[in-house]
Amino acid sequence: MHRTRIKLEAVAFTLPSLLLTLALGIYPIFWAIRYMFYEYAGYGTPKFVGLYNFERLYHDERFWNAVTNTLVYAGGKLLVTLPLSLLLAVLLNRRMRGAGLFKTIFFMPTVLSASVMSIVFYVIFNSYNGMLNQLLQQLGWSRGVEWLGANYAMLTMILIAIWGAVGNYMLLFLAGLQGIPRDIYESASIDGARPAQQFFYITIPMLGPVLQMVMLLAITVSLKGYESIMVLTQGGPFGKTDVMFLYVYKMFFPVASTTAEVQQFGYGSAVGFAAALLIGAVTLIYFYASKKLNSLY
């Protein structure tokens, strides 16, 4: 009787989120899997095309350009974000004045809307009269830099992504650091370990599980990110900042109805599936590598 009641409670508590997950998470996946084999513009009868969407994907230069851009974007973001957020976490973990204020400042970008901030970044990076170029001009760099032009747009997007992510990962690292007992550091310092040695021989190994989790999160989030790019460059100029999920988005929601562009749900589903597979593959490689590292240490 008691067990039945517990089961009933468990079902009652999990049912709402289960239903929502099924409706909003699982059903769309099956919907997309089905439409990968169809041509469908959102109206009329979907036309079965077999594997044509995948054949098209294989030859689609724009998709492969988006894949390359995604790897550059995610790689650039991760290379800077992870060390920087760890460094900030270590610094702010010390008993110092104003640590709370700095934590708030660094975490602030995480709670701000990516779209709104992208508009602010346009004001900063706009090459004609953006704040950054005006500053450079005042410093004597008369030509300024085309921050959102073909040569620098990806770099700018990476900088914005770093700005948006550092605070979040810093907070996760900080939580991990606070779980390391202080007496370990104290005994290490009595033994004569310098701060750098403490960092590499105590902090990093003891932060291992948190580090692995943060890296996993960072990899998947970076590979999926596209919001600020959509607002700031729409993937341009001419595909220089197009990333995988922005490309998928544009297949489902073309730029504007005032142009003769057609929704391509079938092909968009195939691209989305391929993108998910690629992210899955990268995540598996990471799992494999982190397992290897675990066995080494």
């Binding site: 513009a41 689609d60 073909a150 341009g236 595909g239 142009t259 003769a260 057609v262 391509q264």
Partner: peptide, 22 residues
Amino acid sequence: PVPIVAIEGMGYQEALIKYILI
């Protein structure tokens, strides 16, 4: 009206703007 078609690859506006720019 101009017929609306589902093209594969880059749209004409983007392709021609790219030429203008680079």
